[in-house]
Simulated scan of single mutants.
Amino acid sequence: MNFIRIVKFDFKNIIRNPMLLFFNTIFPLILIGSIGFVMKNGYGSFNVTSYDYYGVTMMIFTAFIICITASNTFMEKSVKKGNTRIVYAPVSKAEIYLSKIISTYILGSIFYSIIIVLGKYVLNINYGTRSTIYIIILINMLTLFGCCLGVLFCCIFKSEEGANSVLQIVIMLFIFFGGVFFPVYSLGKIVESISNLSPLKWITECIFRIIYDNDFSIYLPTIGVMLVSSIICIVICQIIFKPEEYV
């Protein structure tokens, strides 16, 4: 069984899971529509509507929580049972966890790109006049980091349950300090300073700068942060993952 076949196998497992498919396709649109509608009276200044704001932040939220999908792809009980034979196949241990990262990333990058395009041209969400492709790239880089982080936590805790229980705390902290649901500057300078440690803050600020100021000054540094963070996760996976513990 070569690496490409393993990736295809993992990708099919995700597609066959209706809950995972729902959370990575329909769920983001529901979030944008529902929260945008509820908060519509709180926006409107500077030509920024609630749909514009949450059309960005909910995509960031969705792209990051793909780490839950990645952990499910790696060690969910029914999937893990079917994947056990891969451990005994003539493949390197890197191919086992990398296939989970790549298959989940392919799913997320395809569907999130489609959702952004639909949001722009169907829901009239402001993703900038000519900057949509740059936003898609940023969301895809965050998706890659989320996939790597989810697989890393599986390697650390050796079970989906353990990984997800800790991931939920990490997600909550990153989202809070990243200003995904509301700007954190209103909570004081200390919280605002701590928020700089959240990669979601970098993504959020970068996207809004691009859309409303045509400012790309932190675009490449943000991509660099996401890429380096993803590589660090992969390196740690390579060090600590033991295929025999996957059985």
Rank of each mutant, 00 (worst) to 15 (best):
C155H: 10
M172A: 15
F157M: 07
M141S: 12
L144W: 10
C154Y: 06
N140H: 05
I156L: 01
I169P: 14
G146P: 08
F176A: 08
N140F: 10
L149Q: 02
S159V: 06
Q168M: 11
C148M: 06
C148N: 03
L149F: 12
F153W: 14
G150S: 11
F153T: 04
L149P: 03
F153C: 01
E161A: 14
Y134I: 08
N164M: 15
N140T: 11
F153A: 00
C155A: 15
I169G: 09
C155D: 01
L144H: 09
F176H: 06
Y134T: 09
A163G: 05
N164L: 15
L149V: 13
Y134L: 10
I137R: 12
L152M: 08
L152F: 10
G162R: 03
M141P: 05
F145N: 00
G162S: 08
E160L: 07
I137H: 12
G150H: 03
N140D: 13
I171Y: 06
M172R: 10
V170S: 09
L149S: 11
L144Q: 08
I139D: 05
G146F: 04
C148A: 11
I135N: 07
L144K: 14
I171W: 06
N164H: 13
E160Y: 13
L167Q: 05
Q168K: 14
K158M: 00
F174N: 07
I156W: 01
E160Q: 14
K158L: 00
Y134F: 15
L138A: 04
F177H: 08
I139H: 03
F145C: 02
F177Y: 15
F157S: 02
M141G: 11
G150Q: 02
I156R: 00
F174S: 13
V166F: 14
C148K: 01
I156K: 02
L152D: 01
F176L: 10
S159G: 02
S165D: 09
M172V: 14
